[in-house]
Design a protein around this nucleic acid. Structure first.
Length: 718
RNA sequence: GCCGGAGUGGCGGAAUUGGCAGACGCGCCGGACUCAAAAUCCGGUGGAGGUGAUACUCCGUGUGGGUUCGACUCCCACCUCCGGCACCA
């Protein structure tokens, strides 16, 4: 538990994790403004697993973009921690300070480019940095306080929006560059974040874009200490910083020189030297922050924690678990528009019988915050393996059976969970793995990302989204409550107010049709627009199936006695196609195969009982209800769910004769019907003998004949 | 700005390994059935030219180049859209 700056969302009445706040400073759910403010909250130390969370991505079969998003979020960077000593204040009285503070007269910074330390011409502290007060001189105190006050009043979002123009003020204090021994000024500026590294930087304007902009703005010295490989001379006073790797220049003192060293070696050399002087050491830094784990919500797992009157925090005994939520009439969160409203967890209104616990003669108050929704999703997949076990959350044998060698075989989920659920669950799983409760280091062996469903969204003249269900189209424009709105395509959901309830479609067409439509829209991994107009096609398909199978007048099965050979072989082909398509998660083409088959069967005059049974089994994964109904109509008492997948005969898939296109110079000019097993020589002879081909080749010389059996013939002639 | 993904008919999409671009569905057009409509069934449907109709010809997978007998598919450069991150030192 720690008092830390957290993301407070008054409109939701709760605090949120970093991962739940969008880059424009709003809540991921609901799109409400989020404010930073210090609060005492529970945190989970996910940072302790940063290294393994990044590294173990190599163990899993996941889409590369998702792995990349996690790696970026974890943000591992290698560099060095370097200590800059504070110089005695020019006008100050260092002796005034207590020895305690004097010992802390050093500012540690993290840098990925320790090799540029000779070019560090100033330092910058974040406005919130604890040393700001100490380094500031009396002359600068007013300016600094004013800047700090201003920075605090601006939200992160504002800080980002104004980021083009750098701002800052000098503190008047100096630090000593450990490499050059020179005094360099210490500034404060909000382009340095308190939340990353140490909240302070060494500024190397010659080789960092941001430092360069800042130095230009405030006329600070720029020294070049790295030149690009192969560059003849140290650069002129260039108009931008060289941030790449190169060769060290202007970088030597009496003990160490980086001149002539390539960046990689220079880093190593200078870090070793700094370490020998007790001024630094190698360091791996992560962007990942600890996970804010408290919410001011009713619906969340209560913490098994008690607070004593004297402030002590004690955990409940295992025998007292689980803590169940109290019955409450009003469990709504306390929401507000006021950024300064204080969080009031709904459980603060719980009955005293729940809220207070007597123990050893003392009265304890239960923790009133609850866990976020992610707590459940971090381990539900384990519980699903063994849901009725009342001894353990999952039996080890059962866990090994289901979670196998590398976790869940196929986990389907959207990319929006990349740095939320998929990161959190991996973290918990690793903790459980370390504690010996699960057998694999990773929970999800194979991840498949389905695409987003997109839908039209509408914004009014203020750019605010309006309920798309209430938008009407008129004279080629779109209107909401009489006002013109503009249309765009976006991810369907609450934030764009363009969600469509599937209930209406179920109502109108049935859920088999809905299911078919969703699968038929396109590839599972692709984002695709929701277009209700297309639904009718799938509904027609199911109706055609039913009409073909059942006599409309008496409701009896309508089957023929003799199988049509063309239909029979097409059925084998269809089953084979569906098998392959399911294997590669191409449900859209599998359904196309089913439709093609039914179209053929309709034209051919129906199916036999046996054919219909096989068809029903092939249809079942896509339209389970109607397939069951069909199965029943065909005379079965038991569900088809227990039937094996219909077999197909490989021999039925191969044809005796095939049609082979013949190209002349890459353009199809003729078609050949030849035995499927014809040799290359035979195909070539047949192609050259074709009447159309010979007429087109008249007066030309054949240069080359390319024959790809079963595919194509291409004749090159001039 | 950086990192990812994607651009194919009027629309959603197909083309499994470099081998007939546009499967299948929607929409649209025409026909059958009907007093009529709906539903259903049958046929047509990338564009341009061409024909009495059939033939047939040219163009065509975001743009420009390249590799190849052959490119939606591979390579280079660019454009547009979507997603993520964004002063991370």
């Amino acid at each position: 538990m720690a008092e830390v700056p957290v993301n407070w969302c008054p409109a939701l009445g709760t605090v949120l994790a970093n991962e739940e706040v969008t880059s424009d400073g709003r809540s991921e759910r609901g799109n409400h403004p989020v404010y930073k403010r210090p609060l005492n909250q529970w945190m989970l130390r996910i940072t302790a697993y940063a290294e393994r969370l990044a590294e173990d991505l190599e163990l899993v079969d996941w889409p590369e973009p998702i792995k990349l998003m996690q790696r970026n979020w974890i943000g591992r960077s290698e560099g060095a921690m370097i200590e800059f000593a504070l110089a005695p204040k020019r006008t100050g009285h260092l002796s005034d300070q207590s020895s305690d503070q004097a010992q802390q007269n050093v500012i540690p910074v993290f840098t990925t480019r320790p090799d540029t330390v000779f070019g560090a011409t100033y330092m910058v502290l974040a406005p919130e940095h604890p040393l700001v007060d100490q380094v500031t001189t009396d002359q600068q105190r007013d300016a600094v306080s004013e800047y700090v006050r201003l920075a605090a009043s601006r939200s992160d979002t504002e800080r980002q929006i104004d980021s083009r123009q750098k701002t800052g003020v000098p503190t008047g204090g100096d630090a000593i560059n450990p490499a050059t021994g020179e005094h360099i000024p210490i500034w404060i500026a909000d382009y340095v974040m308190m939340g990353y590294g140490t909240g302070a930087i060494m500024a190397v304007p010659g080789h960092d874009r941001r430092d360069f902009e800042f130095a230009k703005q405030f006329g600070l010295p720029i020294i070049e200490v790295v030149k690009p490989h192969g560059a003849p001379t140290p650069g002129d006073s260039s108009d931008q910083a060289f941030t790449g790797e190169g060769v060290g220049i202007n970088s030597a003192n009496n003990e160490v020189s980086l001149n002539g060293l390539p960046t990689r070696e220079a880093k190593k050399t200078i870090t070793q030297w700094l370490e020998s002087k007790g001024r630094g050491q190698p360091k791996v830094q992560y962007k990942l922050r600890d996970w804010l784990f408290s919410r001011q919500r009713y619906w969340g797992e209560p913490f098994p924690i008690l607070h004593a009157a004297d402030g002590r925090i004690v955990a409940l005994d295992e025998s007292e678990l689980p803590v169940e939520l109290p019955e409450m009439n009003d469990f709504t969160p306390h929401t507000s528009d006021d950024p300064d409203a204080s969080p009031r967890p709904p459980l603060s209104r719980a009955p005293d019988t729940w809220k207070y616990v007597e123990r050893d003669g003392g009265r304890f108050e239960r923790e009133l915050n609850t866990m976020p929704q992610w707590a459940g999703s971090c381990w539900y997949y384990l519980r699903f393996c063994d849901p009725h076990n009342d001894e353990r959350f999952v039996d080890p044998t059962v866990e090994r059976y289901w979670m196998g060698e590398r976790g869940i075989d196929l986990y389907v989920g959207g990319a929006e969970h990349a740095v939320l659920h998929l990161l959190y669950a991996r973290f918990w799983h690793k903790v459980l793995y370390d504690l010996g409760h699960v057998s694999t280091p990773e929970p999800f062996g194979h991840l498949f990302n389905q695409g987003y469903i997109q839908a039209y969204a509408y914004t009014d003249e203020r750019g605010i989204h309006v309920d798309s269900e209430k938008v009407i189209e008129q004279d080629g424009g779109y209107f909401f409550e009489g006002r013109a709105v503009s249309r765009s395509l976006g991810k369907m959901g609450k934030s764009l107010k363009n969600a469509v309830s599937p209930d209406d479609i179920c109502e109108q067409y049935g859920c088999d049709t809905l299911r078919l439509y969703e699968m038929y829209m396109g590839p599972l991994q692709a984002s695709k627009p929701w277009n209700p107009r297309d639904i009718i096609g799938l509904h027609r398909f199911l109706q055609r199936v039913w009409r073909l199978a059942v006599d409309e007048h008496n409701g009896n099965p309508a089957v023929r006695d003799e199988a049509d050979p063309a239909v029979e072989s097409q059925l084998h082909r269809t089953i084979a196609r569906i098998e392959q398509d399911i294997e590669r998660q191409a449900f859209n083409t599998a359904i196309a195969a089913l439709i093609e088959f039914i179209n053929l069967a309709t034209t051919a005059g129906g199916l036999t009982l046996d054919q219909f049974q096989r068809f029903a089994l092939a249809l079942a994964p896509f339209a389970p209800h109607i397939a069951e109904e069909l199965w029943c109509k065909l005379g079965h008492k038991e569900s088809l769910a227990y039937e094996p997948w219909p077999a197909f005969d490989q021999a039925m898939l191969t044809e005796n004769f095939i049609e082979l296109p013949v190209q002349l110079g890459g353009k199809v000019r003729a078609k050949l019907t030849i035995p499927a097993d014809a040799s290359v020589k035979q195909i070539e002879a047949a192609a050259l003998a074709d009447a159309k081909v010979t007429s087109l080749l008249k007066g030309k010389t054949v240069r080359k004949v390319v024959v790809v059996p079963g595919k194509i013939v291409n004749i090159v002639a001039d």
